[in-house]
Design a protein around this nucleic acid. Structure first.
Lengths: 205, 205
DNA sequence: CCACATACTAAACGCCGTTAATAAAATTGA
DNA sequence: TCAATTTTATTAACGGCGTTTAGTATGTGG
């Protein structure tokens, strides 16, 4: 039955074409610039065709985000391999997180800054689901924090609390720098570096 | 010439009505729920009338932001009066900032989480202007940090750097808790308390 | 050859921000 | 007082949006 397979391959090709078109618009100009109609025009299909491959616009963009966050997770896991000191892992990891967000602002906005009203309940549960790249990345962060505590390099605190606090602060750096990009910030490097180092220094035993 | 004045008063009244209607929609259902048409219907005028009082939707948005900043600033200044210790001011101030954001999520979203694409260049320069409430609030924060350093209660660091870092982290707490309200966070109180205290402890001399 | 599933589309619905043209009302000046 | 003028508000429209419905080709399996 080679026919069915060819058909499925062709479907997959079109699905990728849609994603490619959307990714390009999205990376260049952000969420609002990705309109189903524009994507359709780019791939020379009618707008309704997209709905045969994605439930709706947020489904399409969710797929793009997962793609991106897979990269982030991979990046994070690489660091863990190349270092034995969990504190160092944490420092580099948080720094990378912030840099990653700042260099992929549109993806970051959709994943971490989009108003919950914009997402369907289904999308929300997908973001929170244990299989989502975001959740996996968080769990990885928590494990590293736990390791720091276990090795007595950090005070004896709840790893969940510490990991969440670190995430919140790092998110603040990314998101506010993205949104208020016209504010007269001091140099980014100092801002990122000081924020992370200051938080970690407070945690050290 | 009392006539001119009465006219201006009447204009001001309608302007306030528009702001009230917009604010209510904002507070109840968020940014997307504020459409020029809905606001118009609420005040029983035609949609185009709004354009006689505000340049466009982002101008309307800006006005609501200023309002919010003003409340924050006022709140912050009150704290300063009731305490002599700048470190305590800072701790209470940051805590209030976070609480303010969490109890007025839609206001906070409009002021600090709205996409810059939504704002015109004019609005952006208005935000940065030294007269804007946001700038004033930030300068107030920076002054308190400077005072902590001056009194040798903090390490000798750039007050600008420290103030911005504290703002970024606090913003992270507010904004991520708002957006990811379905994430399994530990209790809010612990999260807020630990984040602030940890940052401040790292700064102490 | 026909019934059927698949892939796709045209047209429409009901929103949206915004603009142009115009009407209505208030104010002014003669 | 009454016409001219300015101010205020409206109607209708433009071009966009996400999405749904109903329908058309096209190629497959019996």
């Amino acid at each position: 039955m080679g026919i069915k397979e060819r058909r499925e391959r062709q479907k997959e090709v079109l699905r990728e074409e849609i994603l490619d078109a959307a990714r390009e618009l999205f990376a260049k100009e952000g969420y609002d610039s990705v309109s189903m109609r524009k994507v359709a025009e780019k791939i020379e299909y009618s707008p309704t065709t997209i709905y045969l491959y994605f439930k709706d616009k947020s489904d399409l963009l969710f797929s793009l985000c997962e793609e991106t966050f897979e990269k982030l997770l991979h990046n994070f896991e690489e660091i863990t391999k190349h270092s034995t000191d969990p504190v160092e892992c944490l420092e580099i990891g948080l720094c990378n997180y912030i840099r990653f967000g700042l260099t992929h602002p549109n993806h970051y906005k959709v994943a971490f800054m989009s108003r919950p009203e914009d997402l369907s309940l289904e999308d929300i549960s997908r973001f929170i689901s244990p299989d989502s790249m975001g959740t996996k990345a968080y769990l990885h962060l928590r494990d590293i924090v736990a390791e720091c505590i276990k090795q007595k390099k950090f005070k004896e605190l709840d790893p969940e609390l510490v990991a969440q606090s670190l995430w919140l602060a790092s998110h603040g750096v990314v998101s506010l720098l993205i949104v208020k990009c016209h504010f007269p910030w001091v140099e980014r490097e100092r801002l990122i570096d000081h924020t992370i180092k200051n938080m970690l220094s407070g945690l050290k035993a």
